[in-house]
Design a protein around this nucleic acid. Structure first.
Length: 112
DNA sequence: AATTTGACAGCGA
DNA sequence: GTCGCTGCCAAAT
């Protein structure tokens, strides 16, 4: 397993519930703020046994991933809403409110 | 090694 | 706010 992928999966795996992170953000946490592309690529290659909350990973504008990612955009949206993610009337996520905070890493690890 | 693909991000019109 | 072009990284062929 390459470092990048490992970091991506690790970061995504520790994504808190009720929050959403952008590819660029994850990429940055992985050490490559310009690897947003690679992050998306990793997501596509994300193995199921890791149980990564890929549904919490969205674009910077709050739009969800293509349908084939989870069987339908409504699926991902449903899961996010079920977790407490706030959706705008236009069907997008309230980034300013649900955007994951990297600093949470400290508390996330402390609290478990 | 070079080409093509991909769940992105930033800037300009 | 939306569309098009460009830049970046990693993997597969």
């Amino acid at each position: 397993m390459n470092s990048f992928r490992k970091k991506v999966y690790h970061t995504v795996s520790l994504l808190p519930r009720g929050r959403v992170a952008t590819y660029g953000q994850i990429a940055s946490l992985c050490g490559n703020p310009l690897a947003a592309r690679a992050v998306g690529w990793a997501m596509r290659n994300a193995p199921a046994f890791l149980d990564l909350p890929c549904h919490r990973v969205v674009n910077k504008n709050g739009s969800l991933a293509p349908a084939y990612a989870f069987g339908g955009e409504h699926i991902q949206r449903g899961m996010l809403i079920d977790e407490g993610i706030l959706f705008k009337d236009n069907g997008r996520i309230d980034m300013k409110s649900c955007l994951w905070i990297p600093e949470d890493l400290a508390v996330s690890e402390e609290q478990g």
